[in-house]
Structure formats: C-alpha cells, structure tokens
C-alpha cells in the first residue's frame, strides 16, 4: 500500500514538472533575448542614449531584453565581458588598448564620443591657452595614472615642454583646489563636471574656458561600445540588432526636438542634479557625441584610434603595438 502511494507521488510530481517545463520553455525560447549592458559610469546625462534605449523601448522593439547596468570607478566592462557578466559594455579607448595588450578578446562596435569629454577648465581671467606652449609655468591638475595624465603629457610634448616646465598636482574628487585658485587648470569631463563648475562659477560672476586637447591635434578616443570577439562571431545578428537599437536611441536622445522627454527620463535616474544643469549637460553631450548633423552617431574615427595607440605606446602604457584598427568592427546601422 505504502509503495503504491509512493509511486503515485512520483508520477504526479514528474507530471507537474513536465507541465511546468512545457509552460516555461517555449516562453524562454521565443521571448526576447536577455542581455546585460555595462556602462562606464553612473546614470547621468552623458549616458542619455543608453537610458533612452531602454526607457523609450528601442531595445524592446528589437526583440532584446537589455539590462543596462551603471558603471563606476571599480567597474570594468571589458573584464565583465570576459567573465560573462555582461554581453556588451562601454569602455574608454585606453581600456580597450590595454586589454588588447594583455590578450583580451575585445572588439569596438561604435564610438560614442567623437570629441573626448576629458578636458581642462580654467578661468577666463587667466592667460588664454591658444597653443600647448602656453602651458609653460602653469599649475595643472592631473589624475596621476589616469587618461588625463597621458593626454597632458602628450600636449606638453607637442609644446616641447617637460614636466619641469609646469607644476603638476594630483587631483582628487573635490574641486576646492581649483575653486580656491590653488590649481589653475583642472581636469573635468566637459559634459558633466565641466558644466557644474561652469555654472557654479558663473553664479559667482566668474567666466571659464576649456582646454580641449583635440583642438591641438590630440585625438585621444573616449567611450565606445564594446563586446567580445566571440560574441561577434557566435551571435552576429544579435550584435547587429543591439547596435542598431542603441544607435537609434542615441540619435533620438541627441535630437533637440526630443529634449523634454529625454530630460524627463534622465531626471528619474539622476535625481541629485538640478534641472538647469541637466539641460546644459545634455547640450554639452550633444556637441561631443554629434558634433555635426551629418555625422552618424557611433562613427568610428580610425585615425583617432591609431593616434590613441601611438600615444599609449610613446607613454609606455602598453608594451607593443596592438593594431587596434583591426579590432574596430563598427557594424553598419542598416
């Protein structure tokens, strides 16, 4: 009697599991593809396109279920691609080149910023920097070990200056040395911190200028969309769909006609920033991402990538050439 009961329980349990699998499996197979997309930094205006890709349904319409994850100082999209925590990510050019130097299988799908947002802010009442030589004798802030140090070293070399010709100070997370005029030229992300400082100082009646290395011919590439070479080979359709949706979202986000909707979505994610600042940040981001109306967002500037690699080689950031141009896939949007 007891063994009959046990047999019944087993049969019922097995039947229940089969029914459950039947109900769940087709949904999993036919449903949207689940993907993880790791950003380089926190949610703010500089990732407007990434936010809109989800919030305005661009990914969903492409049959993709994408979880956009915030980045941060300790987050590294390329490492997450390799560890399988992310399918796509945003990484700076120096990260990509360093990763290639150490044997990582990473490819670049799109270049988000056509102009590097890493620039230097200085007060307009100080001697204007019109050529790299004008940096002589100035007190400059740099993040030692960071991108900005590499870019500044390149600028100094262009001006035939050495570190002895300027005074360099290590920057930290607060701007007080710049605000107190202890450091003259301070590194900022033009479209985020740059806007905040510019607005803050304008309220005090001070005008600022920005030192954009690209104006002196230093095109050091910034954030780009990356994935692994393995993903490109094994899921080319998925990569194309992702990129198409993402670039469409960025075009939408950078279109001034959509500004109110875009700002409203950013405000939901970035609650600590004033409305006015967010608006200015969006304007600044637009100039960096789509500097001319004809230029398609995501266009890869191969020459700038080559220059970035050359700079890193000269600065001994990498040991050997990595031929980064061979890793620039840049899938066509159509």
């Amino acid at each position: 009697m007891r063994s009959v009961n046990r047999t019944r329980i087993i049969i019922w349990t097995a039947t229940a599991i089969i029914f459950w699998l039947c109900s769940v499996w087709p949904a999993a197979a036919d449903g949207p593809v689940k993907l993880n997309y790791r950003l380089k930094w926190l949610f703010n205006t500089s990732v407007a396109g990434d936010i809109m890709a989800v919030e305005a349904g661009f990914f969903e319409r492409s049959g993709l279920d994408v979880t956009v994850k915030e980045g941060g100082p300790e987050k590294n999209a390329i490492k997450e691609l390799e560890l399988g925590y992310a399918d796509f990510g945003v990484a700076s050019a120096d990260q990509v080149i360093r990763a290639l130097d150490k044997g990582a299988d990473v490819v670049v799908l799109a270049q988000l910023f056509q102009i590097n947002p890493m620039q230097w802010i200085y007060r307009a009442d100080q001697h204007r920097i019109e050529m790299p030589e004008d940096l002589r004798g100035r007190h400059i802030g740099v993040t030692f070990g960071g991108n900005d140090e590499t870019i500044m070293n390149t600028l100094l070399a262009m001006g035939e200056l050495t570190k002895a010709d300027v005074r360099m100070s290590s920057v930290r997370f607060d701007f007080s040395p710049f605000l107190k005029r202890k450091v003259e030229i301070w590194p900022v992300y033009r479209n985020s911190q740059g806007v905040i400082l510019e607005t803050k100082l304008a309220r005090e009646g001070e005008k600022v200028l920005f030192l954009n290395p690209a104006e002196f011919g230093v095109s050091f590439v910034a954030n780009s969309v990356v994935t692994s070479g393995k993903t490109v080979k094994s899921h080319p359709g998925r990569v194309k769909a992702f990129l198409k949706a993402l670039m469409a979202a960025w075009e939408y986000a950078m279109d001034p006609a959509n500004e109110p909707m875009v700002l409203a979505e950013i405000a939901k994610k970035d609650k600590g920033t004033e409305d006015l600042i967010r608006m200015k940040q969006l304007d600044a981001t637009r100039e960096l991402v789509k500097p001319s109306p004809r230029l398609k967002i995501g266009t890869i500037d191969t020459d700038a990538w080559r220059q970035t690699e050359t700079i890193m080689l000269e600065e001994k950031q990498i040991k050997k050439p990595v031929l980064v141009h061979t890793r620039l896939y840049g899938f066509p949007a159509e």
């Binding site: 390329i78 490492k79 390799e82 560890l83 360093r98 990763a99 130097d101 150490k102 044997g103 990582a104 299988d105």
Partner: peptide, 14 residues
C-alpha cells in the same frame, strides 16, 4: 580553469 586573459587575471610571467 576558465581561460581568462592577462587583462582579467595576470599570469605568473606578467
């Protein structure tokens, strides 16, 4: 074990 590059975990040589 997982086959990671030197970028994620450096090898003994590096």
């Amino acid at each position: 074990g997982v086959g990671l590059s030197d970028y994620v975990i450096p090898g003994p040589e590096l």
